[in-house]
Simulated assay, not measured.
Amino acid sequence: MIVVKELNKSYATRDGKVSALQDINLSIKKGEIFGIIGASGAGKSTLIRCLNRLEQPDSGSVEVAGTNITELKGKELRLARRRIGMIFQQFNLLEAKTVYGNVAFPLRVAGFSKQETRERVHDILELVGLSDKLNVYPSQLSGGQKQRVGIARALAAQPDVLLSDEATSALDPQTTYSILELLQEINRKLNLTIVLITHEMDVLRHICVNAAVIEGGRIVENGPVEQLFYRPESETAKQFVNIFNYYKDANGAEKAVILR
């Protein structure tokens, strides 16, 4: 479904070129929920923006559903991006539009008819549990409800892939779990491939089967989440696990741990 080969990305700064990603290789299966974990500045957000071509890599390739999107331009790239939905940490909702308007927006841009848009919006809001919030504005919603609108908007055009960039970081633990359970339900019902960018070990443990650890723009470990927890190989993974274990409460229940 997603194959990344020898991906490199750098940025020009006043002090010269700075490398953000180096020799990234990843393979993510169709229908998988795959996690990418790393501390702030490790390259997570740059990687996810390369996966949907919001960033142009310096070299290497990103293949999504059999299409090398690093080679696409213009209309072909715009059409390919419709197959890749994205949800964000800070929701990025249009405050002047209702829930209906926010979810309908990408469909209108894509040229869907009013009838198609209406049917699709109603269906997707039912899926995310917001059918009763159709005419409500974002300012009237809780953080969890706002993120559900963000997820609905990302799913509106029926993508093959859903990218999640720290989508639960701004939420409390209880709301985080409800959003993760929603993503699992969406994954089951739609067989949607989901890529989760996170710095929370609990998110990986709760929802992902496989994950990669990124540090300094490089993938330093890649494999089953169970292995990351119980047999970490890289120093970065070991650090995440040690801090995660340190923050267990007196009853042994793990808390979500945030590394910034």
Rank of each mutant, 00 (worst) to 15 (best):
K114V: 14
V149N: 03
M1Q: 12
R14P: 08
E221L: 08
I219G: 05
S113C: 08
G41T: 07
Q140A: 14
G41P: 07
A211K: 00
N210S: 14
D249G: 09
L134A: 05
L162T: 08
P57D: 12
L141M: 08
V4M: 01
R260W: 04
Y247S: 05
K238T: 07
S131L: 06
S61E: 15
N222R: 13
E235W: 12
T193H: 04
S178P: 04
I69Q: 07
Q227I: 14
L182G: 08
E6N: 15
A237N: 07
A250M: 11
K255F: 10
L141N: 02
F88N: 02
G150V: 11
E200L: 00
V203S: 03
I219E: 01
G216F: 13
G252S: 08
D165G: 02
I179M: 07
D202Y: 14
R188C: 14
Q145W: 10
A156W: 11
E6K: 14
V103I: 06
V64Q: 11
E166P: 01
K255I: 09
I194R: 02
K146H: 11
D172W: 00
L259A: 08
L182R: 05
K5L: 09
V209C: 10
C50A: 08
K238C: 07
L134M: 13
S40R: 06
T236W: 12
F229Q: 01
E226T: 05
Q145T: 12
I194L: 07
Y11I: 15
R231N: 14
D58Q: 06
T70W: 10
I197N: 03
I2W: 06
I194T: 14
Y137P: 01
D23L: 09
R14D: 11
A104N: 03
E235T: 14
K29Y: 09
R81Q: 10
F105S: 01
E126K: 15
L21Y: 04
L107D: 01
V213Q: 05
S61N: 10
V136D: 07
N242Y: 14
G38E: 00
L183H: 03
D249A: 06
M86Q: 03
V257Q: 02
V225A: 03
R188I: 15
G144D: 07
N68M: 07
L7E: 10
S27K: 13
S164W: 00
M86Y: 03
M201H: 11
E119Q: 11
I207M: 07
N242K: 15
E166Q: 00
D172Y: 00
K30S: 09
L125M: 09
